[in-house]
Design a binder for these strands. Structure first.
Lengths: 339, 339
DNA sequence: TGTTGTTTTTAAATCCATGTAGTGAACCGG
DNA sequence: CCGGTTCACTACATGGATTTAAAAACAACA
């Protein structure tokens, strides 16, 4: 095991002081070309790799961003397993962070105190909250003294933070209007975790708006909501829908996984999609086009959402953006076989 | 912005030296109970959080494990997007690491040199290689002087590393035998990236073994292989299979996503599964049961694979395990609607 | 009381970089 | 040739912990 090459070795080898090496490395532009070359040569010949740990300690900056995802059951596994929305978004973040030499730390979260100590212990440069957390968390994290970006937050502390969302209401509207345009008048809405600050409420609002615009009644009996596994909820709701008989001919599900669960339940009961029931989902995850029939859905560019959240937090860190801003990304209807 | 509480503050507050605080914190058992209590009290009252960065620098240990995933197109996004195998496994790792106060850093990889410098810069305590990399990488990483765990590696450097796999050959065998038991004699194999050291080769071997055992010929024309997007490959191969007419009645796909692509293509051409074609996949990802029809598949406990790889690398770090060992986990046939 | 041995405690060096404050040399105009 | 400025570079303190080696405190015994 050979010893690690440090800045000191480079300095000695090049016959200069450590500060000089540091300056050359950090591009402080006042060294002579001669010295600069000597140092670069030494760095190359010794294969010197600066130590991020030492840099972090010295600069009080870790080049690490923490991403916090709500975990249940003390593990992220069920979320990773089912909700590909999260993993797709992480892909977008990783793409940006890698380019800027940042690393990405992922953690599930139990208590607000946990993220506080996580920041302090790891010297995190920023925190991205991905998903919906208990409302009191948003009050507490304000005190964290660390750049924060929220995603999909609709609660009352929204003005305090940078916030990336898509136009959920417009999405609900487009989905529902599409079904209406196809001639459907008895449309059901299936949501998940429909609290008053979730994305689903906004998708539901879009749903209602489209109905009203078409002078169709909003039948409360056709609105569904569930907790737990998205697929399971969809599957159960699909079965429930069947009991309603011809009171329903179309379904807007607030997420693709829900829609896929519904689709599965309907087909298990020998119903045909889209002949017997039309279904529209939301998200446009990869699996939506794999599905049989492929799923009409509201596409949100999840990858791009990850990219933008990453860029936003880097902007805050570099002081290029300071006043909290809501960024709302557009959505788009993608028509496939399920309608 | 209040200043961070350091070990020095704790020491002053408790009226002892910094070393004493450090000793108490690290459980070096030679302090008097009296001092111990004083220090603990100070820690609690000042809400002291030890700084991992400083600890890393001092101990040369970061409590961070790097997970390297093959990336194409300079981004992990396509992989995260499509191949849920990776994300499910990450869930298992995160579960273990969280319990042990380790964090998980994820990175795509381009060159072996990149991981070398990543380890050095971040002082990583261990590295897990998830997926298949160019063979020369496995020769080079041996020199890294850092605990390493491989997953799904079948190459010639296997003896040098701890290696977690499932019984791929047995899986291929079980899948194929199941199809044979169902009366199929003309069975096609669809693989992905079928190099001579991939998991797929072993699944193919199992496939061949089952055929031979049943005295069925191995028809090279029925063996397929593709590169790129799993779903796309499956979809293309599905279309190709149709051209073979009744030369094929059943398909064993070496991964669920392939199977789902095949299924989609077949159904687009009005073929019925399992009536016209029986399909068996491999992995048992969550989406396999969502699929229409739900997919018969070889279940590998992906979550558990993540758990075991995480535990293994922690064991190496804690010197509880030193000689490289292959761990082969069992697989299991899950029969669903597609056969 | 002095000697020896053990247990606690601490001062100071270390880990590896950054960055402030300061040094000496070259250069300038007068 | 002198005072002032600029330039190129360096010594050293700093960040927050660990850890070695040494000092202090205490105990036991003659």
């Amino acid at each position: 095991m050979k010893k690690k090459v440090t800045i000191r070795d480079v300095a000695d080898y090049a016959g200069v002081s450590r500060s000089t090496v540091s300056y050359v490395l950090n591009g402080v532009n006042k060294m002579s070309n001669n010295t600069k070359e000597k140092v670069m040569k030494a760095i190359k010949e010794l294969d010197y790799q600066p130590d991020f740990t030492a840099i972090s300690l010295s600069k009080k900056k870790s080049n690490i961003i923490g991403v916090i995802i709500p975990s249940f059951d003390d593990s992220l596994a069920p979320i990773f397993k089912e909700n590909h929305y999260y993993t797709e978004i992480l892909g977008g973040m990783e793409y940006v962070f890698r380019k800027h030499n940042y690393d990405l730390l992922i953690s599930g979260m139990r208590e607000p105190e946990d993220c506080k100590s996580w920041i302090q212990r790891r010297n995190l440069d920023g925190l991205i909250f991905l998903g919906l957390f208990p409302e009191r968390l948003y009050a507490e994290i304000r005190l964290l003294d660390c750049p924060i970006v929220l995603m999909d937050y609709y609660g009352k502390h929204g003005d305090l933070y940078h916030n990336i969302r898509v136009d959920d209401e417009q999405g609900g509207y487009l989905a529902t209007k599409h079904l209406i345009d196809r001639g459907h008048t008895r449309i059901s809405f299936v949501g998940h975790d429909l609290t008053n600050i979730s994305v689903d409420v906004n998708r539901l609002n879009g749903f209602k708006k489209a109905l009203q615009e078409a002078n169709l009644p909003v039948d409360e009996d056709l609105l569904f909501d569930g907790r737990g596994s998205f697929y399971e909820v969809g599957h159960q709701m699909g079965t429930k829908l069947l009991e309603l008989g011809d009171k329903v001919t179309a379904i807007f599900a607030s997420s693709d996984i829900l829609a896929i669960g519904i689709n599965k339940a309907l087909q298990e009961h020998k119903k045909e999609v889209p002949k017997d029931y039309a279904i529209v989902g939301f998200d446009d995850l990869a699996i939506s086009s794999y599905s049989v029939p492929s799923l009409t859905t509201i596409k949100q560019n999840v990858f791009n959402k990850g990219v933008i959240s990453a860029q936003t937090i880097l902007d805050i860190i570099n002081q290029e953006s300071s006043t909290p801003a809501n960024i709302t990304l557009p959505v788009e209807l993608v028509v496939r076989e399920s309608t």
